[in-house]
Design a protein around this nucleic acid. Structure first.
Lengths: 158, 158
DNA sequence: ACGGATAGACAACCTCATTGACCATATAGA
DNA sequence: TCTATATGGTCAATGAGGTTGTCTATCCGT
């Protein structure tokens, strides 16, 4: 039993969100310095949703939880920024496959490295033991696929 | 030293976000059943930003990280939903004070209770000891005011 | 070969934010 | 006190990003 009173229940969710923002903001600060200044938090999710083999606008929309048209517009933006390209699928003339460009892949590689660096820094602050306990606890409390890409819309007002 | 390899660095932030969403979704499911079906995740933040003594649209906009016009529109919506009301300030004829209605306060009280209930459930799943360790770790890693109200805009694409 | 299902593009619209302009009021300073 | 400036609120125009509806082209099972 702990002698201290429990903190109010609203603190934990706010801390979870703040910790997420802290990591993501730090990631984007660093990746901006490495040549990707115009990336937004959302884009990392989109890149992950596209994946190494490419995908289509419809499938992307499903993964992102938005309409295929919205996904198509997102792809257009990322195409203009030079992160993705569209090609045709020889096996299915309807599909137009969205793939990451070299620049897009570079971004993914750097993101993965920076995420690992940030985790290492947290591990140094907290101790690897305690960090793993946090990760284990979160896996237990919030199981399932962590890639919920519809967050922006989810959060907004009616 | 842990013999298991460390998980990839991107898992932790995604779990943090997923855990946040899990709590907030559960909160809104329950508070909808208690007579507040049209609340959105954002609104809790707005209520907190308004506070017990009321505030103005300009100040609200500052706290939310949006323009005063956007804050004014949000207030209009919440006024139509019956959660806030606007009155004039006898000490300053320019100011129009936004205050929570009885319904708004009811919502805040219920939210606080449900958050405590959810925390108690997590404590039962995880053990109070381990839950406190998570909270402590998050306070250490993401210190500062957890009320960052500009999250929706922050997350969006350019 | 045909009919339903699927991928994509185009158009109209909606919501919510933005900026700019404007008026009313408060406040500090000559 | 009078005036200049800052502040609070509203209105108007705009833009980003999402939605639905509709249309065409293509695939696939019967």
């Amino acid at each position: 039993m702990s002698s201290e009173p429990a903190p109010p229940g609203f603190e934990l969710p706010l801390r979870l969100l703040l910790a997420f923002r802290t990591i993501i903001d730090e990631l984007h600060e660093r990746i901006a310095r490495e040549g990707h200044p115009d990336l937004r938090p959302m884009h990392g999710f989109v890149f992950q949703a596209i994946g190494p083999h490419g995908t289509t606008a419809v499938e992307l929309g499903r993964r992102l939880g938005v309409s295929k048209q919205a996904a198509g517009k997102t792809v257009e933006n990322l195409e203009q920024l030079g992160y993705v390209e569209r090609g045709s699928d020889p096996a299915d003339a309807r599909r137009k496959v969205v793939r990451l460009t070299a620049r897009g892949v570079d971004c993914l590689v750097r993101s993965a490295r920076i995420f690992d660096e940030l985790r290492a820094e947290w591990s140094a602050t907290l101790g690897e033991e305690r960090l793993r306990e946090v990760e284990t606890a979160l896996r237990l409390l919030a199981p399932g696929d962590p890639f919920r890409l519809d967050t922006p819309r989810w959060f907004g007002s009616p």
